[in-house]
């Protein structure tokens, strides 16, 4: 399709560095807003929630790249590393807000991680992302070879844990977090389908 071709041609001309620059701004901006009264009566919670949500959105965006190419032909693959790293950056600042501005007390932080299932789940999701961020360089991709791919499958459980964390922290069954969970499940299901289809279609896949 000519439209898709044009979009892809346009995307190829966009460098990736501005994504990092613009993507770096939200936590700084929220911090500024928090200091100046722009985050409402409860700035700490507000900053925590905004950063967490942004992190989840970027994780989902990262997961959407393959299906977008597969089903719509739009190629955003060049931006996937930036999107993934920004997701990690938002989730890290989300965690830091919780540690340094919200709870502050190390004993209580540990107690919360151990005792509160939604925090345990959120922490687990974060920990799964650490090795992925640490192996995001070209050198790491080369060094790990095939294992790099396998390692980066960890993003699937991480996204699910993040979405479940979001569903659990709200009071009652609220629509918004359930929508995020549904999107995560759909994106993962598309993945399985892609893999299944590729396995069946590939001539050398037969035994």
């Amino acid at each position: 399709m000519p439209v898709i071709e044009a979009v892809n041609a346009g995307l190829r001309r966009v460098p990736t560095w501005p994504v990092y620059v613009v993507g770096a701004l939200p936590p700084v901006w929220y911090f500024y807003l928090g200091l100046t009264g722009g985050l409402g009566a409860e700035p700490i919670s507000e900053m925590e929630h905004r950063l967490g949500l942004l992190g989840l959105q970027f994780l989902l965006l990262g997961l959407a790249i393959t299906p977008l190419r597969r089903f719509a032909g739009i190629n955003l693959i060049r931006f996937r590393r930036a999107i993934g790293l920004l997701a990690f950056y938002y989730i890290s600042t989300h965690l830091l807000t919780w540690l340094l501005l919200d709870i502050r007390d190390p004993a209580r932080i540990w107690a919360d991680i151990v005792k509160r299932p939604y925090i345990t789940i959120g922490m687990a999701g974060f920990l799964l992302l650490v090795p992925l961020a640490a192996t995001s360089s070209n050198a790491a991709v080369r060094r790990l070879g095939k294992r790099w791919r396998q390692l980066h499958w960890l993003v699937y459980p991480a996204v699910l844990l993040g979405a479940v964390h979001f569903v659990m922290l709200r009071k009652g069954w609220q629509i918004e977090p359930l929508v995020y969970l549904a999107i995560a499940v759909i994106l993962l299901a598309l993945r399985l389908r892609i893999r299944w289809v590729t396995a069946v279609m590939r001539p050398d896949s037969g035994r």
């Binding site: 009566a41 409860e42 919200d102 209580r108 107690a111 919360d112 005792k115 509160r116 939604y118 659990m168």
Partner: peptide, 10 residues
Amino acid sequence: RWSQATERVI
């Protein structure tokens, strides 16, 4: 799901 030991003052 969370501790009630402390609170944040609005």
